[in-house]
Simulated scan of single mutants.
Amino acid sequence: MDRQPAVYILASKPYGTLYIGVTSDLVRRIWEHRSDLVDGFSRRYGCHQLVYFEQHGNIIEAIQREKQMKKWNRAWKIQLIEAQNPGWQDQWSMIVGET
């Protein structure tokens, strides 16, 4: 997957704790979260499963979208995840090109 600005949601488990982030390199950033290299919320609450992501044309758009999503209530975030990923499957293999 090419480097491209993205907004992503990590979960501790299906319907568990959610973390929303933004990055210019999705593969690298998710690998950092999964390896517990990112200190803070995602490590403390075990948010390692990539359950949602969306790519954007530039980092400004991605940051605006992240801020918008962080203001949403939990039900809206769950609806967004389930519209793209109803089984709450970890999307890691999809972004790294594994089958």
Rank of each mutant, 00 (worst) to 15 (best):
Y15H: 15
E66W: 01
R65I: 03
V22L: 07
G21N: 03
P86E: 10
K77Y: 05
W88S: 07
I9Q: 00
A11V: 09
Y52R: 03
A83V: 06
W88V: 09
N73R: 13
T23C: 03
K70Y: 03
G57E: 13
E54A: 10
M69S: 01
P86V: 12
D2I: 14
W76K: 15
M69Q: 05
W31I: 05
R65L: 09
A11S: 15
P14N: 09
Y45S: 04
E98G: 04
M94C: 08
H48K: 15
V7W: 00
Q89A: 13
L18Q: 09
E98D: 12
W72A: 15
I20A: 05
Q91C: 11
S12P: 02
I59E: 07
S35A: 15
L26A: 04
M94I: 14
I59N: 08
R3T: 15
S35F: 01
Y19T: 04
R43D: 02
Q4H: 12
D90C: 10
L18M: 10
L37H: 12
G57M: 05
P5M: 10
K71G: 12
D39L: 08
L18Y: 07
N73K: 13
V38Y: 01
V96D: 07
Q4T: 14
M94G: 02
I20N: 00
D39Y: 08
Y15G: 06
I9N: 00
N73P: 00
G97R: 11
Q55S: 13
D25E: 11
I78N: 03
A62Y: 00
D39T: 12
E32Q: 14
S42C: 11
R74L: 13
S24I: 08
C47L: 04
E54D: 13
W31D: 12
